[in-house]
Write a protein that binds this DNA or RNA. Structure first.
Lengths: 210, 210
DNA sequence: GCCTAAATACGTGTAAAACGGTATTTTTGT
DNA sequence: ACAAAAATACCGTTTTACACGTATTTAGGC
């Protein structure tokens, strides 16, 4: 493992790049091997430099940080990515993480936190600031609420499934169309993140729905 | 409730009917209002007499006691039925009970037991001699053995079903054909008297197979 | 060695559920 | 009154399981 990590910076504001460069230049163990104010351009240039870490903005005009992340992970999987953002909206954080980043810091982050993030990511770990973690918890919780927000009708359908009734039987008993039962089941499976009756029943037993 | 209970006797052997008549004539509280050596004929005649109890043989040429029982319960549900048999084969006993009888006694039964049977059945209870009860236990146990005689492979399949694997996945994991998994499932459902995964899993949980 | 049960596998067809979506009506909350 | 969510219903297609049967091979018990 080489002693100095090479960093590539992408941001649509040159000012931000300059600021980051001033700071990183004072940090030992890191070297800036390239920069770009255009995500597509960065994608091309990364081929010609030996970057270990990519520092990228999230909100960019030509290509979002999410998209850039996906493409970079695809073309240069060894490059670890740290997202830089003005703010930490939970949805965006979640999507960036999903895309494959290893770190997420705010643009108002102090030098010490930047150092910590760079060091951790360089050593193969992840770094998410306390605020980012909070956002993640929010996102996770919202997801959880989403999967558990089953309507009364859906819970009723689940119980009838547990009673081993088929769609047609359920439809007859509830005086609705079999198609309606199908749609309820589809929604139930989606909300509970299950694909089968077995999975659904396990979910339901765990959450004491039945 | 009338004091005297009316009895109708059906047996393809007149001798048996005569013998029963001799005995029952000495028992207070019972009156023989009809007899027949033919089950189909008995079915017709029952319409013209006011019978409370039907004493019927089990093994008859034109129509079995099982079939007669079913038809009588259908046409004259108020009539309570006592089966008379030469022997107490568990399978036959089970089928007679399933058909709806209220009593089962052997043809070599003593007068006292006959009295007890008649009295109990007349008062709305059931009467099965000790030997009949033994046969029932045998039948029940055999049934139980049958449904629980799942092979090691079948139990393995059940567990994988519970783990929410599909047939193809189970086949791949066990290095067997998907068709083989299908056959195992078919046999499992048959043995456990279930038709669906839900029913099967309930069965399995109850019997602590999983 | 023989018999039986278990395990395996297949053919053919049907039934039920899932998939991925759209659309309208009703209900609920503000 | 209005907006959003819920409930309802449908479409066409695909996937999976089930049904009912037959057949061969392997394993186990005697």
């Amino acid at each position: 493992m080489q002693a100095v990590k090479n960093i590539f910076i992408v941001d649509d504001h040159q000012m931000v790049i300059d600021g980051l460069r001033l700071i990183i230049d004072t940090i030992e163990g890191f070297d800036i091997v390239g920069e770009s104010t255009s995500a597509p351009h960065a994608l091309d240039v990364l081929d010609t430099v030996n970057a270990d870490i990519l520092l990228t903005d999230v909100s960019m005009p030509e290509m979002s940080g999410i998209e850039l992340t996906r493409l970079v992970k695809k073309r240069y999987p060894h490059i670890r990515i740290i997202a830089l953002s003005m703010f930490s909206e939970s949805q965006v954080v979640a999507e960036m993480i999903d895309a494959g980043i290893s770190g997420y810091i705010l643009k108002n982050t102090g030098k010490q936190e930047l150092i910590e993030a760079l060091n951790k990511v360089a050593s193969g770990q992840n770094y998410f600031g306390p605020d980012i973690t909070l956002q993640l918890m929010k996102s996770f919780k919202r997801n959880q609420d989403e999967t558990s927000r089953l309507t009364d009708r859906e819970i009723e359908i689940i119980r009838m499934i547990e009673q081993d009734f088929g769609n047609k039987q359920i439809a007859d008993m509830l005086f609705i169309s079999e198609r309606t039962v199908e749609t309820h089941r589809k929604n139930i499976l989606r909300k509970t993140n299950t694909q089968t009756v077995v999975g659904l029943l396990k979910y339901a037993y765990e959450r004491k729905i039945i």
